[in-house]
């Protein structure tokens, strides 16, 4: 009886919390289906007539938002960051894991220290410097240069992650190759990278997620046509055919874009759940 009561309380609490956590998703869909008028003038829970057409309007027409061009820009930025950061972090992590050299521990402790450095302190000075160097007014494809430049040195957290990963691999891996006269870069690229599939997958997933959701960097560095979906969604969503004057007539459309923008990440999560959980729990990586 006591166990039953305990379980009852426990599960009710969990279900209650689940409802609280799920609710914003539910509200997101409900709001996307409402008519702009409903949001402006009345308070109602359910939409009068669900406007599924919002999804079609967002995807098929350019009247709401240039959806696919913006999405393409997001993917460009994501690809640049994911590929470059993953590669260079692995290379740097490999260096720290497999060589004993003077200054190694000191440099590694600097990397750990930069991990603790508030991002704002790096990001804003970088922006001021890039602006002075003229990075802000470049034509496509050079407008993505800030991402290339900031990705090449790798990210501290992933350098740390790869170092831990490579340090755990046996020394025999490189010895055989060394005897055969293989260069160190070949050893890294042809022997160590192929066996580090899980680490690469985890890194790529987190890099993709962070770059995909990033708002401020594209807001600072990109202009209208090259802009990513995250920024376009906030700044450039219009409500087609809405004539009344209201503060926020475009909210249902914005929400529709928001749902379409969120879906790829949720799908990615369900396909690669294992890597998400492993990545977080082994490194303490936090989104």
């Amino acid at each position: 009886m006591k166990l039953f009561l305990r379980n009852f309380v426990l599960y009710s609490l969990m279900i209650f919390l689940c409802i609280l956590f799920i609710f914003p998703f539910f509200w997101m869909i409900i709001t996307a289906l409402k008519q702009p008028e409903e949001l402006a003038f009345t308070i109602a829970f359910f939409p009068e007539a669900p406007q599924w057409i919002h999804f079609l309007e967002v995807i098929m027409t350019d009247e709401v938002i240039p959806f696919f061009p913006s999405f393409r820009n997001t993917l460009i930025v994501c690809t640049i960051v994911t590929v470059l950061v993953c590669f260079s972090s692995a290379m740097i992590g490999f260096g720290f894991a497999r060589f004993k050299a003077p200054g190694r521990n000191f440099l590694f402790s600097i990397i750990l220290a930069t991990m603790m450095l508030p991002q704002l302190m790096i990001f804003i000075p970088q922006y001021i410097m890039f602006a002075q160097l003229g990075f802000l007014s470049l034509e496509w494809p050079f407008c993505y240069l800030p991402w290339v430049v900031t990705s090449l040195p790798g990210w501290a957290i992933f350098i740390f992650y790869y170092r831990q990963f490579f340090a755990g691999l046996p020394k025999e891996l490189e010895d055989a190759a060394l005897i055969d006269g293989c260069g160190w870069f070949r050893i890294f690229w042809s022997i160590f990278m192929p066996v580090s599939g899980p680490a690469v997958t985890t890194t790529c997933i987190f890099l993709f997620q962070w770059t995909y959701t990033d708002y401020v960097t594209p807001l600072l560095y990109l202009t209208s046509e090259d802009q990513t979906l995250a920024v376009q969604m906030m700044t450039n969503t219009k409500a087609p055919g809405v004539s009344f004057t209201s503060m926020i007539p475009h909210i249902p459309y914005q929400m529709t874009v928001g749902i379409l923008f969120t879906l790829p990440l949720i799908m990615l999560f369900f396909f690669a759940q294992r890597y998400f959980m492993q990545g977080i729990s082994t490194t303490g990586i936090k989104g």
Binding site: L17, I22, P24, Q209, T213, T262, F269, F276
Partner: peptide, 27 residues
């Protein structure tokens, strides 16, 4: 379920909470 919210991009999260807390039509 408890992990799902962290997958929502910050813009979409703020948008949803913006409409939940909205004066005219918020939940």
């Amino acid at each position: 379920i408890f992990y799902l919210p962290t997958l929502v991009p910050g813009v979409a999260t703020a948008l949803v909470f913006g409409t939940i807390f909205n004066t005219n039509s918020g939940f």
